[in-house]
Nucleic acid binder design. Structure first.
Lengths: 338, 338
DNA sequence: CTGAAAGCGCTTACAG
DNA sequence: CTGAAAGCGCTTACAG
C-alpha cells in the first residue's frame, strides 16, 4: 500500500486560468455560465480543464456563495421498504436541481439545537414524521432554517409546509371494504406507534368505518403493531393465544402485515378463508406475500418528490403550498378474500 | 409564508471572539481542542457560543483544512433490503469518527472521471460491487482517491482494499445440504446478474456442490434471477410452463427467493414438499416468508462496518487489509424441508 | 468580453 | 496561554 499516503495534487482555478492564459474571474464565469466568455476562450478553458483534470472545490464554492448545495434528510430510521422509494423520490428532484443529499437518522443529535451540526450546513432539510422532537422543529423554524415536513403536520404556531397522504380516509375505506364486501365484523386493528401522526389517523379511520357500519368499537381489538414485522407478529401471537374471536386484521402498514401473516400461518389459521388481512402502504413486497396482500397504495415516491419540490420552492424564496395531501388508492388482492 | 425569505443571520467565529473578548485563533483552538485555552477563557467562550447560537461553517473549515469530513457511498441502487443494513453498518463507524455520509446511486456520472463531482469532495469513498465501471475505479485509484471496494475484488494492477464474504464456499454448502440431507437432484440455480462478481461466485459454488456429489451440471437449470423478485418470478414461471423436472431452487439472493416462492405458490407447487427453496443473504424478511426461508447468513452490517474501518485506515495513511473475507453461516429454516 | 481585488469564515504556524 | 496574519479556493461587484 505505498499509495495510501499519496496526496492528490490539488488543481485550483488558478492553475486552469494560468494554463488558458486568462484570469480566474473568467474561469469562474465559464464554470458557472453566469457571464460572457468569448468563443475561443471557451475552447482554451475546456481544454485546460481536461488537461489538468480540474474539479472545483465544493468547500471554496460554498464559502463564497454561502450555499452548500446540499439538502438534509431526517429519518427516524433507514430501515423499512417505505424509506427507499421515499428517498428515491426525493433524490430524483434534488439531483435534477443540482443538490446532493445528506441522510441523517436521528441518532446523534449534537448541535446546539439538538441537531447534528452537519444539518446547519445544508441549504434546507426534509423532516420525516417523528424523527425530530416538535420543539426542535420549532427552534429550527425560528432560526429561519428552510424545511418541509413529511407525514406530519406543522407544529402549532409555525408555517412549515407539510406533505402527507389521506391517512384517515383511506383507512376508513379499506376497513369498510372488509365489512361491506366480506362481511367481517370483528376486525383487529394492528396500530402503529402512537407518536406517529399517521398511525393515529389510521386508527381514527378504522373507528370511522366501524361507526359508519354501526359496529361497536372494541378497544380490545386494537393491538400494538409498531409498523414493525416482529412487534406485529408477537402481538397477534399473544392475542391468538388468549382469544379467538376475530375475523380480520387491518395493519397500520405493510410491514406489520408481514408479521401478521406469519403469526396466522404459524397458528394454522387460513388467510383469507378464516381471517382477512389488509395492510397499508402498498410496499413493493406486498404483491409477493402469500396470499398477495390487499392494501392501500401510498404514492411514496411522489410524496418524496413533492416534499423536495416544496423545499426547493422555499429555498428560492417562493411560496410553497403549506399543506399537500396526496391521494391514495385501494389495491385489492387476495388476502382480504377478493 | 413571510418567513420564507428570511435570512439566517450568520454568526461567525469573529462574533464569538468579540463577545468573549479573545481572538479568533483562541476560539478555533477551543473549538477543535487542539491547543491550550485557559479555564476562565473556556467559560466565556462556552457562554458566548451559547448566547449567539454559534455553529461553525463546514465550508470554511473544509477550505482551511482541505478535508470535507464526508465519506461517499456508491451504490448501484438504493433499493433492496440488502443495502439498508449495509449503510447502517457503515454509518455506525463513520459517524463515530465524525464523518457524514453522502450517498450516491450511480445514475448521474458527470465529473471528469465519470464520477459525480460531489465525490471528489469527499475524503474517501466506499464502492459497492458493480456501481462503477472498472476503468473508472482504476482512474480514481490513479488520482489517489481513497476508496474501499465492497463485494468486489480490486481491479488488476491496483491495490484497493476490498471487503467481501465467502460467496463460493457458502453456496456450495447450501446446495450440498439440499443434495445430501434432502436428496434433491434437479436443482435450479436462479443466478444473479452475471456482471456481479458475487453472483458469479455463487454460481460457481453451485457447480462445486453438484460436482462433489457426482451430479451432472445442466446449464438448462440455470435461470436468470437478477437478484430481483420480479425477474426471478417471471423466470421461474416461464420455466415451469415448459418443464417440470426440478425438485429444488437455489436463488442467488433472498430477493429472488421471494419471487420464486410467489411463482411456486401461484403454480400450486408445494414448498418444501415438492420443491425445496433456499436463498442467500438472510435478509430480515426471510424469516417471515411462507414457509420461512432457509438461507445463508451474510453479516451485511459487519461488511459495512469493516469496509468503513478499512477506509478510515486508508485515510489516516495506515495500512489496511487488502482483502477481507467475512464468514457466512447456514441458516436452516423450513423452505428446504428441514 | 475580461481582469484586479475584496471577501466568504475558518485554521495554522509563528511570535510573544 | 494568546494574538496577528497569511492562506485555503472560490465568487462577485466594479471598472475597463
Amino acid at each position: 500500500m505505498t499509495r495510501s499516503n499519496s496526496q492528490v495534487i490539488s488543481i485550483t482555478i488558478r492553475d486552469v486560468a494560468r494554463r488558458a492564459g486568462v484570469s480566474v474571474a473568467t474561469v469562474s464565469r465559464f464554470l458557472n455560465a453566469n457571464g460572457p466568455v468569448a468563443q475561443d476562450t471557451r475552447q482554451r478553458l475546456e481544454q485546460a480543464m481536461l488537461d489538468l483534470n480540474y474539479v472545483p472545490k465544493a468547500a471554496a464554492r460554498s464559502l463564497a456563495t454561502r450555499q452548500s448545495r446540499m439538502i438534509g434528510i431526517f429519518l427516524s430510521s433507514i430501515y423499512g421498504d417505505f424509506f427507499t422509494p421515499l428517498i428515491s423520490g426525493i433524490e430524483e428532484v434534488t439531483a435534477a436541481a443540482g443538490f446532493d443529499l445528506l441522510i441523517s437518522t436521528a441518532n446523534q443529535l449534537n448541535g446546539p439545537q439538538d441537531l447534528p451540526m452537519a444539518m446547519f450546513n445544508t441549504d434546507g432539510m426534509l423532516v420525516f414524521a417523528d424523527s425530530l422532537p416538535v420543539n426542535t422543529i420549532q427552534r429550527c423554524y425560528e432560526l429561519g432554517l428552510h424545511m418541509v415536513l413529511i407525514q406530519q403536520s406543522a407544529p402549532h404556531g409555525t408555517l412549515i409546509p407539510s406533505v402527507t397522504i389521506e391517512n384517515r380516509q383511506a383507512s376508513r375505506q379499506v376497513v369498510s371494504h372488509l365489512i361491506e364486501v366480506h362481511g367481517r365484523k370483528r376486525i383487529v386493528m394492528m396500530a402503529g406507534p402512537s407518536s406517529h401522526e399517521d398511525a393515529q389517523l389510521r386508527t381514527l379511520g378504522y373507528k370511522d368505518a366501524l361507526h359508519a357500519a354501526g359496529l361497536k368499537y372494541d378497544p380490545q381489538l386494537v393491538l400494538t403493531g409498531g409498523f414493525d414485522r416482529q412487534i406485529a407478529e408477537a402481538s397477534l401471537k399473544q392475542f391468538i393465544a388468549q382469544n379467538w374471536d376475530f375475523d380480520a386484521v387491518f395493519t397500520g402498514d405493510d410491514d406489520a402485515a408481514v408479521g401478521v401473516l406469519a403469526a396466522l400461518s404459524k397458528a394454522g389459521i387460513q388467510v383469507p378463508e378464516e381471517v382477512s388481512v389488509v395492510g397499508f402502504d402498498n410496499q413493493l413486497l406486498s404483491a409477493y406475500l402469500v396470499p398477495p396482500l390487499t392494501t392501500v397504495n401510498v404514492p411514496i415516491n411522489q410524496v418524496g418528490q413533492t416534499a423536495a419540490r416544496q423545499l426547493l420552492c422555499l429555498m428560492r424564496g417562493e411560496h410553497p403550498n403549506l399543506v399537500t395531501v396526496l391521494p391514495t388508492e385501494l389495491v385489492l388482492r387476495h388476502s382480504c378474500g377478493c
